[in-house]
C-alpha cells in the first residue's frame, strides 16, 4: 500500500515575494527511489520550491505532504523524512566536522544509541573519514560541500533535497558527488536542482523544468531522450519560448 503512494506530493504551490510571484500553481509527485532533476534559468523558482518542500518557507497557497504528513499541519513528523542542502551551505565555521555532524544528527532527532554509528557511516559515504577533528572553516570548498551533503543524509531521510550540490566544485569532485548520489538513490529519493544539463542526463530519472514560476516540462528522461531531442535543445526551446511570449 505505502509503496504505491507518492513519497512527496506537492499540490498547487503558489508563493509571492511581496508582489512578485515566484512560483505559481506548481504540482508534482515524487515516488520512492526516484531522482528528480529540477531545471530552470536563474530566478525561475527552483530554490523557492525546494525551500517550501523542506519547510524553510511557507507557501501562500497549496500544500506539501511528505510520507503522508502535511508539512504545515504536522511539521515535526514530515521534517524527520527530509534532508536539505541549501545553496548557501548551512555550516557553523567555528565547529569541527564531528561537532557539526553530531549537532545536525541530534537536531534531526536520531536516537542516542545510533548516533555514533550513523555519523560514522555518513562520514565514510561522504569521504570525510579522517577529517573529524578539522575545523570546518579550514576546509576547501569541495570538502565544505561534502560536509553540507553529510548533514543532509546523516539521518538517512527518505527524501534528500539538494540545491545545486555541485556548484563551485572541480570536475573530479563533481564526479565523486555524482557517484555518491547514485549510491544514495538506492535507498533514498532525491530532488536535485542544477544548471548543468549533463548532470541531469547522467543521474536523474525524471526532469522537471521550471520557468518563470511555472512547470513547463515534467517528463521521464527516457521518454524525453527517445524523442530524438536532446535535453539541451528542449531546455532552450522551452525557456526561450517563454521569453518571446513575455516580450
Amino acid at each position: 500500500m505505502i509503496e504505491n503512494k507518492p513519497l512527496v506530493s506537492v499540490n498547487q504551490l503558489t508563493r509571492f515575494y511581496g508582489k512578485v510571484c515566484a512560483i505559481k500553481d506548481i504540482s508534482f509527485d515524487i515516488n520512492r527511489g526516484e531522482i528528480l532533476g529540477l531545471l530552470g534559468p536563474n530566478g525561475a523558482g527552483k530554490s523557492t520550491t525546494m525551500q517550501i518542500i523542506s519547510g524553510v518557507l511557507s507557501a501562500n497557497s497549496g500544500s506539501v505532504s511528505i510520507a503522508g504528513y502535511d508539512i504545515q499541519d504536522s511539521p515535526k513528523l514530515a521534517k524527520k523524512n527530509i534532508g536539505f542542502l541549501p545553496e548557501q551551505l548551512p555550516l557553523y565555521y567555528d565547529l569541527t566536522i564531528d561537532e557539526y555532524l553530531l549537532y545536525a544528527a541530534k537536531l534531526r532527532g536520531i536516537k542516542k544509541i545510533n548516533l555514533k554509528e550513523k555519523i560514522d557511516i555518513c562520514k565514510e559515504r561522504c569521504g570525510l573519514e579522517n577529517l573529524g577533528l578539522r575545523l570546518i572553516n579550514n576546509l576547501s570548498k569541495g570538502y565544505k560541500q561534502r560536509v553540507g551533503l553529510a548533514q543532509a543524509i546523516v539521518h538517512t531521510p527518505s527524501i534528500i533535497i539538494l540545491d545545486e550540490p555541485t556548484s563551485g566544485l572541480d570536475p573530479k569532485q563533481i564526479l565523486e558527488i555524482r557517484e555518491l548520489m547514485h549510491e544514495l538513490s538506492k535507498n533514498h529519493s532525491i530532488i536535485l536542482s542544477t544548471h548543468i544539463l549533463s548532470e541531469v542526463e547522467t543521474i536523474c530519472d525524471r526532469v522537471l523544468i521550471i520557468n518563470k514560476g511555472n512547470i513547463v516540462l515534467d517528463q521521464h528522461l527516457k521518454d524525453l531522450l527517445s524523442n530524438k531531442n536532446s535535453l539541451e535543445k528542449t531546455f532552450l526551446h522551452l525557456t526561450e519560448n517563454n521569453k518571446k511570449i513575455n516580450e
Binding site: S54, V56, F84, P86, P90
Partner: peptide
C-alpha cells in the same frame, strides 16, 4: 551563515 535553513528544515 544560512544555518537558519538547517534549523527550519529540522524537526524542531
Amino acid at each position: 551563515l544560512g544555518t537558519i535553513k538547517l534549523l527550519f528544515s529540522s524537526p524542531i
